[in-house]
Design a binder for these strands. Sequence first.
DNA 1: TTGTAGGCGTTATCAA
DNA 2: TTGATAACGCCTACAA
Lengths: 341, 341
Amino acid sequence: MISGKKTPTIQDVARHASVSAATVSRVLSSPERVSETTRERVTAAVRETGYTINQAARSLRLKAARTILMAAPNIGNPFYSTIVDAVLSEAAARGYSVLVASSIGDDPNLWLRDYLLSTRADGLLLFDGSLDTKRLHGLDEGGVSLPLVAAYDEIPDPEINSVITDNRLAAKRAIRHLVELGHRRIGHVTFPSRNGTTNERLIGYHEAMTEAGLETHPEWMALGNYNMPSGAAAAEQLLALKQRPTAVFCANDEMAIGFVHQMRKAGVECPRDISVIGFDDITVAEYFDPPLTTMRQPREQIGRMATRSLIDIIEGIQPEDEPVHLVLMSDLIVRKSTRAI
Amino acid sequence: MISGKKTPTIQDVARHASVSAATVSRVLSSPERVSETTRERVTAAVRETGYTINQAARSLRLKAARTILMAAPNIGNPFYSTIVDAVLSEAAARGYSVLVASSIGDDPNLWLRDYLLSTRADGLLLFDGSLDTKRLHGLDEGGVSLPLVAAYDEIPDPEINSVITDNRLAAKRAIRHLVELGHRRIGHVTFPSRNGTTNERLIGYHEAMTEAGLETHPEWMALGNYNMPSGAAAAEQLLALKQRPTAVFCANDEMAIGFVHQMRKAGVECPRDISVIGFDDITVAEYFDPPLTTMRQPREQIGRMATRSLIDIIEGIQPEDEPVHLVLMSDLIVRKSTRAI
DNA sequence: TTGTAGGCGTTATCAA
DNA sequence: TTGATAACGCCTACAA
C-alpha cells in the first residue's frame, strides 16, 4: 500500500493505469468486458495504490448496500447465537455483510423502518415474534418492497416469507414420548405468547394430551421467560402442588435446566421423581446432569436457510409473489432426563 | 407515509415545505440554526412525506458510516454473546450501528481492511486474539488512523487501545483458592495460545503454583479448545493418569463443564474426587450440577467499555496519542465444584 | 474495447 | 436565517 494523504479512489487507480475510471470500474465488476492487457494493468494499479472500493458511494449509486439486518430479541441467548454463526457464514458466502440489532427499544418498528429505508440494509431477517410484521409489511406501501424473512415460533403470516420449525408437531412428539413412558400427569412450562397468536408449542401440548386421552390442569402450567431463573421459578411453583405432575415439558432447554436445578435444590430428583423434557438442544443440554432429553431444532439450518432465502429475494432469484414457507423438522433426542414411570 | 413511486429524498421534503434542501438538512442535523417557524414547517413535511435519510449518501458525504465492526472468533460461544448484547446496546445509545463478522475465513486481515477502508465501518472492536494487530495497525500507514479497540485475553500491545480483564491475576486467584482448600496436585486445562504470546491464564497458573511452593507436572496439563467436548477430552486424559491431580483449573467454564461431565461418566465425582474451577461465569455455571466455582469476568462491562472507548476514539473525544488501557477485575465466585481436600 | 458525462442524495461553503 | 452550488466516489448509458 502506497502512502498518501488519503485513501485512493477509483480515479487514482485510473491515473496509475493510464485508463479511465470507467475502465477500472469495469475491471472490478465485469472483468470479461475488458481486454486482458488492460485488465492486468488495472489489477496491478489496484494493488499498487492499495485501492479499496468505497461502499458508501457504491451503495448510493446502486441503491443497494449488500447488507442484511438481523433482528433478534436477545442475541445473548445461546439458542440465537448458533443461528447468528450460520447467518454470518451464509451471508459472507454470498458477499453480504450483516448488521445486527437487538430489538429492544422504544419503537422497534421505527428504527427498523429507518434501517431498511435508508440504504443501510437491503433486507431483514426477523427472529423476533414480538415485532409487528403486519406493520412491517406495511412499509411496502409506495411500491417499494421490503425483503423480509421471519424465523420464529409463531404460525406464519402467509404473506410473509418464513423459515420455521414445526413447533406444534415437535411439541406433540415431546408429549408422546412422555406418554409412551407411562406419564399421565404432564406439566408444561411455557411463555406467554408475544403477539396474540397462541404459541404453537402450547397448542401442541394440548393437542397431544387430548389425543392421549389425558387431562390437563391449569395448575400444571407455569409461565416462564425462556431463561434459567424463570425455569427455576416454575419448578418452585409446580413442586408446591399437592399432587405434582410426574413429567414436565419445558418450552426450551434453558427453562428445563433451571427447572431441574431447582428440583435438585428441593431434594427432588430428575428423572427419578419428575421427568423433564426440553426444547432446542442447546450445546450444554448434552453435558448437563442429567443429560437433557429434548427436541432438537436444526438451528444452524434455520439460520442458513433463512439467510439464503432472504438474499434470493433481494436479488430477485425468488419471485416476490411466491412467498417462501420453509418448515424444518425437529428431532427427539432421548437422553437421561426422562424415564418410564 | 405518502404513497409514491420511490422513497422520498431531501429534495421532496424541501419542495413540500417550500424551502431549500440545505434548510431541510439543517433542520435534521442542527435545528438550532433554523428559525422556529421554518423548523416546524420542515418537520411537518418530513412527517408527511415519510422521509428517511439516505445513509449511503450521508456516509459518502461525511466520510463516516456511524457504524462499528465487531469481530469475534465465534459469536456462537456463550461468552461472547453476552458481550454482543452489551455492545449493541451501548452502540445504539450512541447512535451507531453494529456490523458483526465472525473472523473465520481465508485472510481475515484482508477483509477487515476492506471493511474499514471502505466507509462501511468507522472502527473495529476486536475480540479475536488470532488476528494480527500489528498488521492491522499497519493499516494506519497513509496517515489514516484506524480506530481499534482490542478486548481479549492476551497481554495488550501498548500502542493499541484495549479493554481486558486481568487474566493473570485472576488465574492466580483461582489457583490460590484451590491451594487454600489444601490442594497440592493441581492440573490445568488450557488453550494453545493463538498469536505467539503465552496465555496469561497459563502464566498465572504457573506463577501461583510457584508462589505456593508447588510443583507443576507436564502431564497435569491438557490442551483444550474452549468448548465442552475438548473439556471432556481433557478429562479423559487426566483421569488416565496413575496419579491424578486432586483439583483442576479450566481456562473457561465450557471446558470445565465438559470436564465434569466426563468425570461423571467415568464414575469420578466432582468435587468429591476432583475439584474443578472454571473461568468466565457463563449463565449456566450457576445452574450446573455441581454449581461451578469460577472466576467471573465482567463481560457486560467489557462490551460496554470497549464500545464506549471505540466511539470516543472515532469521535475524537479520546486523543489518539493516548491509548486506552482498561483493565477490569474478575471475581472469585465460590460454588460447589471445589472443596477442601 | 474504451472514454465521456451525468447523477445517485447529502452536507459544507459561500453569498445574499 | 436561508439558498445556490459544488463536491463526496461510484456506475452506466451512450458515444467513439
